[in-house]
Computed example of a mutant assay.
Amino acid sequence: MTLSEMERQHGFTYPALYRQLERDGMLAVGEYGPDWYKLVYPTLTERPTLLLHADDFELLSVKAVAAAMEELADPDDYRQIDPALRFIPFAQTGAGDHYCFFASSRHAGEMPVVLLWHDQNEAQYLAKNLQDFVFHMLLSSMADQDTYNEVSDEEFKEQLANTLGTHARYLTPEQAQILQTLLARDIIDYDVPLPKGRKEAHRGLLTDVELAGLREDLIPYEKFDHCFAYSAAG
């Protein structure tokens, strides 16, 4: 199954940027399996595919996209998605929620990116288009070093530098320059406030407050983080 075949079968058009990424090999992650992380992942790290190092983001192969689209369109699927809503999955979280292009909300050539939750009747707006989504995910990666898996400062910076090397051409010059400037910073430790006076320790090249400010300044989107029901049965 090719991207063009899926467009014809399901009656939509992919964003031009997604097609460009596919032509450039940025979607070629191979087939996931028990040995993927050991055998395939190391071959991708020097020239990372789309958001390879992003937190909780697993890019779907074209074959996996086709299978996911069939599931979402199945009237017997447990999510009971309203057939009037067109979701085109392209990645997923570790829990099985899908990152999707929301074809039903295409406006002025822009196709929003949403997160389709698998265990609740909600889809969440993430960005007004794929380019802004990629930029926001890269900002988020810079703000949050993976200390849980003990990624060292050197590994963290190397992953980001390699990622910027393959991703910068798909961003606006301003977005790419912002990321390059952030990459030159020293890593800092900061706390993120939580409810009831609690706080959570984080480490990265910018704080959550700076991240929110850059998002609002550079990729403003009035629907960001808003949710809507995807099933009339829910």
Rank of each mutant, 00 (worst) to 15 (best):
Y125Q: 04
Y125L: 09
L126N: 04
K128M: 06
L130C: 02
L130H: 02
Q131L: 03
Q131Y: 07
D132H: 13
D132T: 05
V134N: 01
V134R: 01
F135T: 04
F135S: 00
M137K: 10
L139N: 00
S140Y: 10
S141W: 08
S141R: 10
S141A: 14
S141N: 11
M142A: 11
M142L: 09
A143Y: 01
D144F: 08
D144V: 05
Q145F: 06
Q145H: 05
D146N: 15
T147A: 06
T147M: 13
Y148I: 12
Y148C: 02
N149F: 12
N149E: 03
E150D: 11
E150K: 14
V151A: 05
V151K: 11
D153H: 14
E154M: 09
F156G: 02
E158R: 15
N162Y: 09
T163A: 14
L164K: 03
G165W: 08
T166E: 10
Y170I: 13
Y170Q: 09
Y170C: 08
P173W: 08
I178E: 02
L182V: 00
R185A: 04
I187Q: 04
I187C: 05
D189T: 15
D189Y: 10
D191T: 12
V192K: 09
P193Q: 05
P193V: 10
P195Q: 09
R198F: 12
R198V: 03
E200W: 14
A201G: 12
H202F: 13
H202Q: 13
T207A: 04
D208G: 07
D208V: 14
V209W: 02
V209M: 06
A212T: 11
G213A: 07
G213K: 12
G213R: 12
L214C: 06
L214N: 01
R215P: 01
